[in-house]
């Protein structure tokens, strides 16, 4: 494992700066809540949270932001971008990662003392994510094994009754298989700094993240996952988007009071 103290990669070849796309929704009245930074998974952009969650989070009194992954990125660059945006906020931020973005957040937590962290439908490291993808969408996933960009199918991400599913799917960007490989098979993240309270949420009916993987991820942070049966992988876009974000903000409010 690379050292957390001797960071030669950062010292000798810093990640080059880019213009980052950050979407924000601010509460009407300034309250003493920490800002919340949403981190989308691969293929998604900041828009995925701007659809419902940013506005809802702001309406509950938290400044809400989401950052798109940079083009031609790498795991290191994604983590760098998340930490840069978080450190640029006026107060210690809460990091919320979705899908592969949860993995990016897990890495960012080792670099930045978040106020709290939420891993939503967190894609597990290693082979189990690939196994699940092969079962749910063999045709879209197989090409990835020979290095092509995997194609995410409608039924992997969205529930059947979601009317906007096709429109959302059209917005997805294809990410090269190499990036998936890098994110999924990276050295596991080091322990979070500053010991932030961490919540794992997901759905037992998610076709990207197996139920067992959810339990494993939650266990690593010393808890059990908060489950929303019937929902698909893209919790923030699903017809029931309100339930998980309300549960997350309820949990957050309780943690901040405690």
């Amino acid at each position: 494992m690379s050292s957390q103290v001797l960071r030669f990669a950062d010292w000798t070849s810093p990640v080059p700066p880019v213009r980052r796309e950050v979407l924000s929704a601010l509460p009407e009245t300034a309250e003493d809540n920490p800002p919340v930074l949403f981190v989308p998974g691969l293929g998604h952009g900041a828009w995925a949270f701007a659809e419902h969650w940013l506005g809802h989070t702001a309406s509950r009194g938290f400044a809400a932001h989401s950052v798109s992954p940079r083009a031609n990125g790498s795991l290191r660059a994604y983590v760098h971008d998340v930490v840069q945006v978080a450190a640029g906020l006026p107060r210690q931020a809460v990091l919320v990662g979705h899908g592969a973005g949860a993995l990016v957040v897990a890495h960012a937590l080792a670099r930045y003392p978040a106020r709290a962290a939420v891993l939503a439908a967190p894609v597990p490291e290693g082979w189990s994510a690939l196994g699940a993808a092969l079962r749910a969408n063999p045709l879209g996933t197989l090409p990835a094994l020979i290095g092509a960009a995997p194609r995410l199918s409608r039924k992997q991400l969205f529930s059947a009754e979601l009317a906007e599913a096709d429109a959302y799917r059209a917005k997805l960007e294809r990410t090269p298989a190499a990036i998936y490989r890098q994110v999924l098979f990276a050295t596991p993240p080091a322990a979070p700094v500053g010991d932030p309270p961490t919540l794992v949420v997901g759905s037992p009916d998610d076709r990207v993240v197996p139920r067992k993987a959810l339990d494993r991820t939650a266990a690593r942070f010393g808890g059990a996952p908060l489950l929303f049966p019937g929902m698909a992988h893209d919790l923030m876009l699903d017809t029931n988007w309100r339930e998980p974000i309300d549960a997350i903000l309820d949990w957050l409010t309780k943690e901040l009071a405690g």
Binding site: Q4, V5, R7, D10, W11, P14, V15, P16, P17, H80, V83, Q84, A87, G88, R111, Y112, P113, V193, G194
Partner: peptide
């Protein structure tokens, strides 16, 4: 230089 000067858990803006 900046990367060798910033706090490890609160980087300076990269621009």
């Amino acid at each position: 230089s900046r990367p060798l000067t910033e706090f490890p858990d609160f980087p300076m803006p990269d621009d």
